[in-house]
């Protein structure tokens, strides 16, 4: 896996990796860096424009946007990374197992994913949030319950592909138990593609969270998250542009950096053009 270091070979890779690292650092050090508390607001100071006191202005409760953007990095990164971790792990295992063993399991899961794919994401998420109730963990759950399908499809396709390779045939001939082949031989060869899709999906889930906040079913607004900050600011965009623009830029730059990182990863791992499962990139929009 040391090939991952190849990301740093290009200037673009270095820049994007630096940006992502900066974000992670800023998120970790938010309590130290932030000039105010994330929930402490002064109603008399609401919607104050950027000034020396509040570099990026204040929101509709008089809270410092810079502070909340810093803290928001924690929540947004967590939403993106956690959801991707869950969906990637689950989707990859199910897809690899299905693609490797085929049979009834594969057929059943195939049908389920077809249904899930044909179910509109936004309706699914609104319904799930109504069913589970509000909250951070529930949001991640609602996003994950459908989000794993993309990973499943990719992992299954890759596994099918790997299954026909010589080394798999060879290990079979050597009499290795099949699960061992799957986890030791096949899965490691599937992972590069998965890791590329993962980086692309992190940004996708963060933008999706923003869209859900637009509909009032995202993260509770007292928890600072970029998505909900952007959508909170939409009501006052005409009088206080900074409320949604600052977290918007923060989100944009991070998603950009993560995507570029994914791109560099892709070039390192798989310079070839991919099959369809891959030519359908994570589109940063929802219905």
């Amino acid at each position: 896996m040391n090939r991952a270091a190849g990301v740093f070979a290009t200037p673009l890779g270095r820049i994007s990796a630096t940006i992502v690292a900066t974000y992670v650092l800023a998120a970790a050090l938010a309590p130290v860096l932030a000039p105010y508390g994330p929930e402490a607001g002064d109603l008399a100071q609401r919607l104050a424009p950027p000034s020396a006191q509040h570099w990026f202005g204040t929101d509709s409760l008089g809270r410092d946007i810079l502070t909340r953007t810093l803290y928001g990095a924690r929540v947004s990164l967590l939403v993106g990374i956690l959801t991707v971790a869950i969906t990637a792990a689950f989707g990859t295992v199910v897809g690899a197992v299905g693609g490797f063993y085929r049979g009834a399991f594969d057929a059943v899961v195939g049908r389920v994913t077809e249904l899930l794919l044909a179910f509109p994401y936004l309706i699914f998420a609104i319904g799930m949030m109504a069913f589970l109730g509000p909250g951070f963990a529930n949001l991640v759950a609602a996003l994950s319950l459908k989000g794993w399908v993309e990973f499943y499809r990719l992992a299954r396709g890759e596994t099918l592909d790997q299954g026909q390779r010589e080394y798999v045939e060879a290990s079979r001939a050597l009499g290795q138990k099949r699960p061992r082949t799957l986890f030791r031989e096949v899965l490691p060869n599937v992972l590069p593609a998965i890791s590329v899709l993962s980086t692309l999906r992190i940004g996708y889930f963060m933008v999706l969270e923003a869209s859900l906040s637009f509909l009032g079913v995202g993260i509770p607004p007292n928890i600072p998250a970029w998505g909900s900050m952007i959508s909170e600011g939409r009501g006052v965009l005409f009088i206080a542009w900074w409320v949604s623009t600052i977290p918007g830029i923060a989100l944009l730059v991070l998603v950009l950096a993560i995507n570029l990182l994914g791109e560099s990863l892709q070039e390192v791992y798989a310079p070839r053009n991919k099959r369809r499962g891959f030519a359908r990139p994570a589109v940063g929009k929802v219905r």
Partner: peptide, 27 residues
């Protein structure tokens, strides 16, 4: 939700341990 956040902050200031959840109104 704006109002709710302001109320919770005021209640906390006098020592009431209030926290906030935001719901879809039908739910």
């Amino acid at each position: 939700s704006d109002e709710g956040q302001a109320i919770v902050a005021q209640l906390q200031a006098i020592g009431i341990d209030a926290s906030l959840r935001v719901w879809q109104s039908t739910v």
